[in-house]
């Protein structure tokens, strides 16, 4: 049963990912992306990583995509932008990226198949407690660095956003 669940979730993820990438309306694309993320969360859960699954839902689907939606709404991308998208997405442009992706798939897939055949994931659950222990011992430096990175992003985003507000106030 669980095995089927994995393949179903994988199919949903791939389908919605393709849809998310090709939609013309940004809001629709983001909703499809949420579905992709949710199905990836299901896969995480099946793989025995409940903590990662929770983070995927809470932060990715919950926070990051919502941030995208905010911006889309703020910029007010309406019908005209949909029309422009269909103008931009001419089939001629797809050829080269499709070829490149296809070749990459072949080469990557060849690499993946080199992995030892018997490697199976048995779904042994790694609980959040264990993750936390390792995270704050062996990876403590990484955590600090991630903190610095987030701070830098905070400052950067604040800076960019503030200039926008000030300019708008002037006009």
């Amino acid at each position: 049963m669980s095995v089927w669940l994995f393949y179903i979730a994988a199919g949903v993820a791939i389908t919605t990912a393709i849809l998310a990438v090709t939609r013309k309306n940004a809001s629709h694309a983001l909703i499809y992306l949420v579905v992709t993320l949710l199905s990836i969360a299901v896969i995480f859960f099946l793989l025995g990583a409940p903590f990662a699954a929770a983070l995927e839902i809470v932060i990715y689907a919950g926070a990051i995509v919502v941030l995208f939606l905010f911006v889309v709404m703020m910029l007010n991308l309406g019908r005209s932008s949909v029309a422009r998208e269909s103008q931009w997405l001419r089939p001629g442009m797809w050829v080269l990226p499709a070829i490149l992706s296809g070749v990459l798939f072949v080469v990557f897939g060849f690499e993946v198949l080199q992995v030892e055949n018997s490697a199976k994931i048995e779904g042994q659950v790694v609980p959040p407690k264990e993750v936390g222990k390792v995270l704050f011992h062996e990876y403590l430096l990484g955590v600090e660095l991630a903190g610095v990175l987030l701070l830098a992003a905070l400052v950067g985003a604040f800076h960019l956003g503030r200039r926008y507000l000030e300019e708008r106030r002037e006009t």
Partner: peptide, 29 residues
């Protein structure tokens, strides 16, 4: 355990496909 038995390659292939869809998206949009 959740008692599944999936080959590692399958998950990797899923990750690969998603990655390439993303890359494709970056290139065409």
């Amino acid at each position: 355990t959740t008692a599944i038995n999936i080959p590692l390659e399958h998950v990797f292939f899923l990750a690969l496909i998603l990655f390439l869809i993303g890359a494709f998206g970056v290139l065409i949009r």
